[in-house]
């Protein structure tokens, strides 16, 4: 059964679904962001597993290391980019959370989004 052989990928996919579930269901916006980060981490894990090689070694050519046994360097290089992107998005989202909490005094997404929804036109007019 390929599924059990590819258990790394399966774990990554399950983690992805777990993160998406957190993003959809949780009402606290910090927890939503945690879910987002779980999703991101799962994808990073998936990529790194793609580069895995049975009995592989690090792709650093020191002391006559055999290139045929080295693991795939591309996913690692890509994921460095992915991590940076994830950090950037998280930083921006958190700074927005700071501002939202200051202005609304709540972290509950339902209350945040519902508040003043009908008056949006009026309140927009002032500024």
């Amino acid at each position: 059964m390929r599924l059990f052989h590819n258990y790394h990928y399966a774990a990554a996919m399950l983690l992805f679904c777990l993160g998406l579930h957190t993003v959809i269901v949780r009402r606290n916006i910090i927890k939503k962001l945690i879910g987002l980060n779980i999703m991101e981490t799962s994808v990073f894990f998936f990529y790194i597993s793609l580069g895995y090689l049975d009995g592989g070694i690090a792709p650093i050519r020191v002391g006559g290391a055999d290139p045929a046994r080295m693991v795939n360097p591309i996913p690692q290089a890509l994921i460095l980019t992915g991590i940076v992107v994830a950090v950037s998005v998280t930083a921006l989202a958190l700074s927005m959370v700071i501002l939202l909490y200051r202005q609304y005094g709540t972290l509950d997404v339902d209350r945040l989004m519902r508040e003043e929804e009908p008056e949006a036109v009026e309140s927009g007019k002032e500024d």
Partner: peptide, 20 residues
């Protein structure tokens, strides 16, 4: 929805090239 997604993704995993 999440359960359906998980089943779909796990099916894909079972069709992917073997790891390692």
């Amino acid at each position: 929805f999440i359960a359906a997604l998980a089943v779909l993704l796990l099916y894909v995993v079972s069709r992917m090239p073997p790891m390692g």
